[in-house]
Write a protein that binds this DNA or RNA. Sequence first.
DNA 1: GGATTTATTTATCAGTCGATAATTGTCGGG
DNA 2: CCCGACAATTATCGACTGATAAATAAATCC
Lengths: 223, 223
Amino acid sequence: MTPKQPPKRRRLPPTERRDEILQKALNLFAEHGFESSTRELARQLGITQPLLYRYFPSKDDLIREAYRAVYLDRWNIEWDRLLCDRNVPLEERLKSFYASYTKAIFTREWMRIYLFAGLKGADINRWYIGLLEERILQRIVKEYRHLAGLDDQTKPSVEEIELAWALHSGIFYLGVREHIFSLPPSEDRDRTISAVVGVFHNGIQTYFAKAAVPKPTEIKAHA
Amino acid sequence: MTPKQPPKRRRLPPTERRDEILQKALNLFAEHGFESSTRELARQLGITQPLLYRYFPSKDDLIREAYRAVYLDRWNIEWDRLLCDRNVPLEERLKSFYASYTKAIFTREWMRIYLFAGLKGADINRWYIGLLEERILQRIVKEYRHLAGLDDQTKPSVEEIELAWALHSGIFYLGVREHIFSLPPSEDRDRTISAVVGVFHNGIQTYFAKAAVPKPTEIKAHA
DNA sequence: GGATTTATTTATCAGTCGATAATTGTCGGG
DNA sequence: CCCGACAATTATCGACTGATAAATAAATCC
């Protein structure tokens, strides 16, 4: 037998302890918001509350680190490249992008911290939305303009971006329903995404067809 | 001159005071969440904190009243009737429904309390979503089935409801962007709604057309 | 106009919050 | 084996939380 009792104090290398704290803080913030107490956090970690202050100067710093872990570390730089690959049909590109995107962000931590931060007014949130518009939504519009035989270099109009937003939020809200409102998750998310993208794809082409170079008798479909 | 000073104590009839408190509580909860302190609430009302407890037995009761004011009092019973009126083209019905719906709920109070409540896990939230599915989303699906010449009596499939959800959230998220993420509001909301509904309308008809009674030469879509 | 009612205030309690200073105990290097 | 480094603890502060009981003052009634 090993009579050696586990020591009352578990002494860890600093980086390890720090990671442990951050991870648990992420869980806690996601579950109960940023007003979660440092004492509850310490309790769940099996440590004392003042120890937190050895690794994070203040609770606000801990919150900022939580933001970073959620927003920065989960953005896949492949996404916008994937959307541009014109060797693949656009509808298919969108389906696989949203399959990948939702796989990355449809977690309890990401979804809930994203909304808690939004309600709190954290400006990192507006920054993220800017990134989204620039890298994803504008790209989607440009690809559809190209598909419709329109100029795809000019900046998308406000209305076009709004349409891309509608597609995006239609899919994003699947995660909201699951993780914010605690409704049962979709049985087959990719299939749902497929259907939603499909409907959008058909509808948006009609939309752009109306705006296309008007030939008196016919409208060109696609190149 | 009227030398009569306003009395140090403003004595109000109970119902009036109660309404005043509830209204300010709504503002405060919407802005900073339900952890807003009763002292801050009293301060903004120009009264002392213990007075609140004469009108609401506890803070939780005050929160529940806030829910009620947001969820119950803003549901327009005309909405589902409006969606059924087959004298009006469906696309137009949807546009005017969403113009009316967003006019009712796109307020800072409604939007933010809705999401705060969701994150808190309030079950009144799931109840509201149930209402939405039953009265709005199912109705929309039925109307499109009817339009496509399909049976509109059978319960909508999961996928059909998901498509209605996608439309709904696409529009709902306009309010999220404005009131949760503090982005500038749409310049012309009704116009945006029009475009979104339009795209959906065109897309969904293609979707249902595929499911319609198949002509001999056509091939049925995804089996 | 004095008594009664009751809306409102003052005073206060027991917990909890984030944060700091001083103390303790575990581990690795000599 | 002991000692220094430092991870982790204990003790504590002042501010704030929701809530209660008792005192006060404004309106109403006779």
